[in-house]
């Protein structure tokens, strides 16, 4: 019951946060002076193309760009009747891409799945790598392995991921002649999903996931190691050992579970950075995620496309934070019952 209440409360805050974010995103995409159509109309007018001007004017009306800004915003969200009635983000109509002359759904459809795939794969990678290394480092403090892990962690934390991607792209191409760019080998591009295609995608996923996840992994190792070292000094651990518990269960059953708490809480902080990183690294490695589409949309002032992608990455992080909070609530009853 407490869990359900917690879930409800948490979902409410998430909805409010998303509302605030949508307003922010809308302001941001409206910031550039003019819009795609105004620019186009200006261009056409200078060429003296009257019929095209009429068409662009028609489009402006069609997409409500002649309305006041607040009306445009509400129509975009989908709580105010726009030119086509109630049809906005909430109704699943993500707007029109002026540049591609197609609905946003069609432009970014396939990129969304890949973006989610890359990010989830990175989160999984971070955990699978960070937890064992952290346990090793903490239990063998000041050993050679610990120092090595700390050093690698330091470097991983400080190396900018898009530069790392650039370096890897360059050297892998030069030494092995493999192109790590793209999401799959070219021959699968339009092929239906098959085992071979899935394998190709997985192979191309390795480098981006490592590149995006490296700094996160390093941060996680440091945090987990510090937490675990704190717990290992506490008396209950000593007691467990004194009672003759085997080392591994004595580690995993008590101190590890305690150390896991702040670790899980940190996923929420990590996610915005991961998503940021995935956008940038996708641009360098030309992965067909939303990253390259966003850059192009921003450069062309394709406002609804850019707005939708910004909204999408925000939803991705906010939803990820929700999941991490829920996990934390499962782990820690104090949070579930609203006490600190």
């Amino acid at each position: 019951m407490a869990m359900v209440l917690y879930l409800l409360r948490r979902s409410m805050t998430m909805a409010l946060t998303l509302l605030a974010i949508s307003a922010l995103v809308f302001i941001v995409i409206k910031l550039p002076p003019g819009d795609y159509l105004t620019n186009q109309i200006d261009e056409l007018r200078s060429q003296g193309d009257a019929s095209a001007v009429a068409k662009a004017e028609f489009l402006r009306q069609q997409y409500g760009l002649d309305r006041p800004v607040w009306e445009q915003y509400l129509a975009w969200v989908g709580v105010w009747p726009g030119p086509n009635g109630m049809s906005g983000l909430l109704q699943g109509d993500w707007g029109w891409s002026f540049e591609f002359q197609r609905p946003v759904n069609e432009v970014v459809g396939s990129a969304l799945g890949l973006t989610i795939l890359v990010n989830i794969a990175t989160v999984i990678f971070i955990h699978f790598v960070a937890i064992p290394i952290a346990i090793y480092s903490a239990t063998r403090q000041y050993s050679f392995g610990d120092y090595a892990a700390t050093l690698v962690g330091y470097i991983g934390l400080a190396t900018p991921n898009f530069l790392l991607a650039l370096i890897l792209l360059f050297y892998l191409n030069r030494w092995f002649g493999v192109s790590i760019g793209g999401m799959m080998d070219p021959q699968y591009a339009n092929a239906p999903m098959s085992m071979a295609k899935a394998q190709s995608i997985a192979a191309h996923l390795v480098v981006p996931v490592i590149v995006i996840g490296l700094s996160g992994t390093a941060a996680m190792i440091r945090r987990m190691r510090a937490n675990l070292l704190d717990e290992l000094q506490k008396q209950y651990t000593v007691t467990a050992r004194a009672k003759g518990m085997k080392p591994l269960p004595a580690l995993l059953k008590y101190p590890f579970r305690m150390a896991l708490n702040p670790f899980v809480a940190d996923i929420g902080n990590l996610l915005p950075h991961l998503v940021s990183g995935s956008v940038l690294v996708s641009l360098v490695l030309s992965l067909p995620t939303v990253g390259p589409v966003l850059l192009q949309a921003l450069k062309q002032q394709d406002q609804y496309l850019a707005g939708f992608i910004l909204m999408f990455v925000a939803v991705l992080t906010v939803f990820g934070m929700l999941v991490s909070d829920l996990l934390l609530a499962v782990l820690d009853p104090r949070i579930r019952f609203g006490k600190r």
């Binding site: 946060t17 910031l31 998503v275 940021s276 910004l310 990455v313 925000a314």
Partner: peptide, 24 residues
């Protein structure tokens, strides 16, 4: 506090991109 929460849950880079695209 709410402002902090909203800003912290946003990925920085895409917003940076969007804002600098808005520089005339």
């Amino acid at each position: 506090q709410r402002m902090i929460e909203v800003l912290r849950s946003l990925p920085e880079l895409p917003l940076w991109l969007a804002l600098s695209a808005a520089v005339p």
